[in-house]
Write a protein that binds this DNA or RNA. Structure first.
Length: 425
RNA sequence: GGAGAGGUGGCAGAGUGGUUGAAUGCGGCGGUCUUGAAAACCGUUGUCCGUGUAAUGCGGACCGGGGGUUCGAAUCCCUCCCUCUCCGCCA
């Protein structure tokens, strides 16, 4: 949610920001409603002040035994007027809130202006020593490898649940578990995060808090009977840990890391892109979430990206870091880096991580604040999150990059103590 | 699933229609005392909105959410949500 005061004071800035984000210009509508809202509040408050003043006199008059019936009649009228004004006010506020809820965050000034993914900017790439984009044998894709080695079974996953629900088997299952444990441990030991293991079904308030609702409602599973949503990302429960709280300045930056499965309907996205692991309804992800002071959030974003990169460097998987342009930014994000790992079979970079600064956008929705020690004032925190990382896409790159000409998989050294084996096949 | 209890300020916990934003205790902050600390004592202690910025200014709202009764609601009524206890079932 954008700050109404900011919109009021910087309408043209907001207007341009919305255009840059390929979003409808609702600034005038917002300003009009805001104006109306404030007029109604003033009128209503004035009458309420009158009523309060008179009300406080009534017990005294009664004690004196004076007749209060004419006052009652008059105040009845005032009360009706107040009710009418408040009714109008509620309508205006509901409308305003609805518009603001559908209005995306604005991009940070350091974000390149652009229309689509084509305008994204590659910031850097990292290639392990001795790596070559050209293999001297014919590479197999992760689906073929998974099938041959009997570690991934997409067909039976489909039988159990439907397409997009992968079944890991044998060393594939162990490798998946090893990756999760390795990543968690790495962030705990090297990056100073606190581990959390949150609920993976959340209520509507939590979904609103991080901005998945209303914009992405169609992309979410929903358990109607209990009003609960299977989470699309751990960002939701972890960010909501501090919903409706006032944090202490000395506790910031708070850094959480947690593993959860993630569930996405991915409605309407079938076809080539959805083969195997490329797009699934259920996948595993280790997620990092930060709560920072506003002045720290962009430094924290840089270190967040580095934290995710460290995992890939430890695993020696080639990747590149992409800075998303304004048009490709997600609804809630002010700035976002994607990390893409190399798939030799697809000959493509695959998004394996997304690290975003939401500034106060989520904090305003979820009402997450902190108190400044010096001024004692409360302010919204900035929230950030990044995948560190999603295992499905990572698995594609890992299997394909570490395959041998014989179709075996070498396990990266960093994982040995987690897998208990060094090769599959 | 059945039966019951309850949701009040950072926490605990009073308050059943009228100067109640709300007693009291704890915690927090400031001060006195002290070489320092503790104890004791004194003072202070929420959030949001509007308005204004000479101000620790003025006004309004907030006692789980929503609605109602009333001149007036934390207090009465309706409704929804949540939490807890006991029983049942169960990983």
């Amino acid at each position: 949610m954008l700050d109404i005061k900011f919109i009021r004071e910087n309408p043209e800035l907001v207007r341009q920001g919305l255009i840059n984000k390929n979003s409808a210009d609702v600034v005038d509508e917002i300003l009009q409603l805001d104006e109306k809202r404030r007029t109604l509040i003033s009128k209503s408050d004035e009458l309420k002040a009158l009523r309060n003043k008179v009300s406080s006199q009534i017990p005294i008059l009664k004690k004196k035994g004076e007749d209060t019936s004419s006052i009652f009649a008059e105040m009845k009228k005032v009360g009706d007027e107040i009710a009418e004004l408040d009714k109008q006010l509620k309508e205006v506020e509901d409308k305003l809130e609805e518009i603001l809820r559908w209005t995306p965050n604005l991009a940070h000034s350091s974000v390149p202006v652009g229309k689509s993914a084509e305008d994204n900017v590659e910031v850097r790439r990292w290639i392990p020593e001795g790596f070559s984009f050209e293999f001297d044998f014919e590479v197999k894709d992760h689906i073929e490898l998974g099938k041959k080695l009997d570690i991934l079974d997409f067909e039976r996953g489909t039988k159990i649940s439907g397409s997009g629900f992968p079944l890991y088997k044998g060393k594939g299952a162990t490798l998946e578990r090893a990756l999760i444990n390795f990543m968690l441990d790495y962030h705990l030991q090297h990056h100073g995060y606190k581990e959390v293991f949150p609920p993976i079904l959340v209520n509507r308030e939590s979904m609103k808090g991080t901005g998945q609702i209303p914009k992405l409602e169609e992309d979410m599973y929903f358990i109607e009977k209990d009003g609960l949503y299977p989470i699309p990302t751990a960002e939701v429960p972890i960010t909501n840990i501090h919903r409706d709280e006032i944090l202490q300045e000395k506790d910031l930056t708070i850094k959480y890391v947690g593993y959860t499965p993630c569930f996405r309907r991915e409605a309407g996205s079938y076809g080539k892109e959805s083969k195997g692991f490329l797009r699934v309804h259920q996948f595993n992800k280790v997620e990092m979430v930060k709560f920072t002071k506003p002045e720290d959030s962009y430094d924290e974003l840089e270190s967040l990206v580095k934290d995710a990169e460290d995992i890939l460097q430890a695993l020696k998987i080639p990747y590149r870091v992409i800075l998303l342009c304004t048009g490709d930014l997600s609804f809630s994000a002010a700035k976002c880096y994607d990390i893409e790992t190399w798939s030799p079979a697809e000959k493509k970079w695959l998004e394996a991580s997304s690290c975003s600064n939401f500034e106060a956008f989520q904090a305003r929705r979820a009402n997450i604040r902190f108190r400044r020690e010096e001024t004692k004032k409360v302010e919204y925190v900035h929230t950030l999150n990044g995948s560190g990382l999603a295992t499905s896409r990572l698995m594609v790159s890992l299997l394909e990059n570490y395959q041998t000409p014989e179709g075996k998989i070498i396990i990266p050294k960093a994982l040995h103590k987690y897998t208990g084996f060094e090769i599959i096949g």
